[in-house]
């Protein structure tokens, strides 16, 4: 089952296209990082997935075949929006009561236990909590809904490094306990590798890169060698990015073939941050899953 599946999804706000021809399928049981520069369409895609926006063109379904925003979908999809919009004038206890009454499934004991563990005072007004505590509260309310899919829009943006760590630790612990799927958008590319196992890169409203992070990293390499041979090496590989100095060149390439490197050239692993940044720097480059090869199809059918 795919937790989110889109086909030619497009969303226009007046004359601006926030998403264009966005086709993707996110398998269940993954922790998905949605990455892209400002205005790439990350929030729009997530809003479409939780029913906060309707597509201009194309289709989107969640948790198999549910329409986003339908009652069946809302019961199973939890969302923590950017800037954590909670009722600031309510106490934490009242905020929990509001969330409990807005949902047919809500584990209040679990929520209260988590808040106790996080040392968030139940009588304090939500607006008086720190940014990190507000984010933790929003996450706690979402987790208490026992979701099948948790959608987090820029959850780390306002948090300091310690709060970011605590926040993601809470997410990872809940995933380990319940096994639900997570999609989170983030600007903090350096920390993605520790949490996510699946990556979607959006740029200018389109999907630029999509796939299992391990596969994506295995499919790319950083080649370095004499600058005068860089063009020759570049012809053997699909080059994503080229960096040239006076005597030395670095090529970030896809390693789909078995091309041998000339002497003097070295191949190194690429980090996720390098990979993402390279693709973001060149919006024309894309890395999308193609049709399954006969071997892959056979494996897929057997499993």
């Amino acid at each position: 089952m795919n937790v989110v599946e889109t086909s030619g999804l497009a969303k226009r706000y007046r004359s601006t296209w926030a998403l264009r021809d966005c086709t993707l399928a996110v398998p269940a049981g993954r922790i998905v990082a949605l990455v892209g520069p400002n205005g790439a369409g990350k929030t729009t895609l997530l809003h479409c997935a939780v029913g906060l926006c309707t597509a201009t063109n194309g289709n989107i379904t969640v948790l198999g075949d549910l329409a986003p925003g339908s009652l069946d979908a809302l019961e199973r999809v939890a969302f923590v929006a950017q800037d954590v919009p909670l009722y600031k004038y309510l106490s934490v206890r009242s905020m929990v009561a509001v969330a409990r009454n807005l949902n047919s499934r809500f584990d209040q004991a679990q929520a209260e236990e988590r808040l106790r563990a996080l040392e968030i005072p139940p009588d304090r007004k939500v607006g008086k909590l720190s940014g990190g505590q507000q984010a933790q509260l929003a996450l706690t309310l979402s987790l208490a809904r026992d979701p099948d899919l948790l959608v987090l829009d820029e959850p780390l943006a306002r948090l300091d490094p310690l709060a970011r760590h605590d926040f993601m630790a809470l997410v990872m612990a809940a995933v380990a306990a319940s096994g639900f799927s997570v999609i989170f958008s983030s600007h903090v590319v350096s920390e993605l590798e520790r949490f996510a196992d699946y990556l979607i890169v959006l740029a200018r409203g389109r999907v630029q890169m999509l796939g299992d992070i391990d596969d994506l990293l295995a499919g790319h390499a950083m080649l370095s060698g004499p600058v005068e041979e860089s063009d020759l090496v570049g012809e053997q590989f699909a080059v994503v990015q080229t960096r040239k100095a006076a005597r030395h060149a670095e090529l970030l390439v896809r390693t789909t073939g078995n091309s041998e490197l000339p002497s003097g050239w070295e191949s190194d692993h690429v980090s996720l941050e390098e990979l993402v940044l390279a693709y973001l720097r060149d919006p024309s480059a894309s890395m999308l899953p193609g049709p399954l090869t006969p071997d892959e199809l056979e494996v897929s059918e057997v499993t």
Binding site: L52, G69, L71, L74, A81, L102, N103, R145
Partner: peptide
């Protein structure tokens, strides 16, 4: 104005019924 609709309208009760 405050953005809290993004909380309320994504809860199980649904935006129209809320």
């Amino acid at each position: 104005e405050s953005g809290t609709f993004r909380f309320t309208w994504t809860q199980g009760v649904g935006r129209s019924r809320a």
